[in-house]
């Protein structure tokens, strides 16, 4: 008995060593590229900066400013609003696309459709944002077109350099990220469940509401998180198409770090935003928990 348990322990140890050696490259990578910068930001958020000199220490002044100064409050709530709106628009538009591909495209064509949906990723994100400038601008494609067919008399100015442009651009950019998880969730639904619902007396619409939608919820939840979390931290889009009224919290963080030489305040803003996004995501997951469990 003692022999076998000693042997077992040794083999378990060998296994553990092998396990560690297997995970160590990604672990190292995660430590260097995720944990290290993140901890740096958290640490710096308690420091102070005088011109170019960072002074280590411990102060909560940065957080006080981040939470109480009206400009930060405005930017933060605008960012949250934009992110929520972008998420809502993206997911609501993505669902029908995913549904169509999953339920109405012939199986052998599905891969082609998914491939087509990812085509926008072939060009750089910056290029796509610039394209939206071309489409939405004062002399842009949309205005010229509408003027040409006589729908409007003068160019629309609410299209570009404001929050609308940010929402349109982001919703377009994130669409595939929303479509794919919803598509996968819909694909996993056993079609006989829909027949069963129909057989038990429910119409197509009620079947969708009682079976398809609840079973697609894991995909919807994933889509919401995938779109919401990065959107709130996006600063390229608002800085290119947002104008002055379309600036978001990430732009302010960038300004604090690179222009105003106040990295600690920027770090505090970043940490605050992160905590808020984290808290909202956790709340959202708790809220949708009943849809996520009990499914294989």
């Amino acid at each position: 008995m003692a022999d076998t348990s000693a042997g077992e322990r040794a083999s378990r140890r060998r296994e553990a060593v092998r396990g560690f050696s297997l995970v160590s490259p990604p672990l190292l990578y995660a430590l260097l590229l995720l944990a290290a910068p993140l901890s740096a930001v958290v640490v710096i958020s308690f420091w102070t900066q005088d011109y170019l000199t960072l002074t280590p220490g411990f102060t909560l002044d940065n957080y006080e400013q981040a939470l109480t100064r009206p400009v930060f409050q405005t930017l933060l709530s605008r960012s949250l609003g934009v992110a929520l709106l972008v998420t809502a628009v993206t997911v609501v538009l993505a669902f029908p696309v995913a549904y169509y591909v999953s339920f109405h495209v012939r199986p052998e064509r599905k891969a082609l459709w998914i491939f087509l949906i990812t085509i926008p990723f072939w060009t750089s994100y910056l290029l796509r944002v610039f394209l939206w400038r071309v489409i939405l601008g004062y002399n842009g494609v949309l205005n010229t077109g509408l003027l040409g067919i006589g729908v409007i008399d003068e160019p629309l100015t609410f299209l570009l350099y404001n929050v609308n442009a940010v929402i349109i651009t982001l919703a377009h950019a994130w669409a595939p990220f929303a479509i794919l998880p919803i598509f996968v969730a819909l694909e996993k639904i056993d079609r006989s469940l829909l027949e069963a619902s129909h057989d038990l007396g429910e119409s197509r619409v009620r079947t969708f509401l009682r079976v398809t939608l609840p079973l697609a919820m894991p995909g919807v939840v994933a889509a919401v998180l995938i779109v919401f979390i990065p959107t709130i931290g996006d600063y390229v889009t608002p800085s290119l198409v947002g104008g002055s009224s379309g600036q978001l919290i990430a732009n302010m963080i960038q300004v604090q770090f690179l222009r105003l030489n106040n990295a600690p305040l920027g770090a505090a803003l970043a940490v605050t935003t992160m905590l808020i996004v984290g808290a909202m995501s956790v709340l959202f997951l708790l809220f949708t928990r009943r849809y996520l469990r009990g499914q294989q």
Binding site: D190, S192, S197, D199, Y291
Partner: peptide, 14 residues
């Protein structure tokens, strides 16, 4: 006026 017991049973997992 028919109901079916499916081969896969089609029990709603949610």
């Amino acid at each position: 006026p028919t109901n079916m017991v499916f081969q896969s049973y089609a029990i709603f997992p949610h």
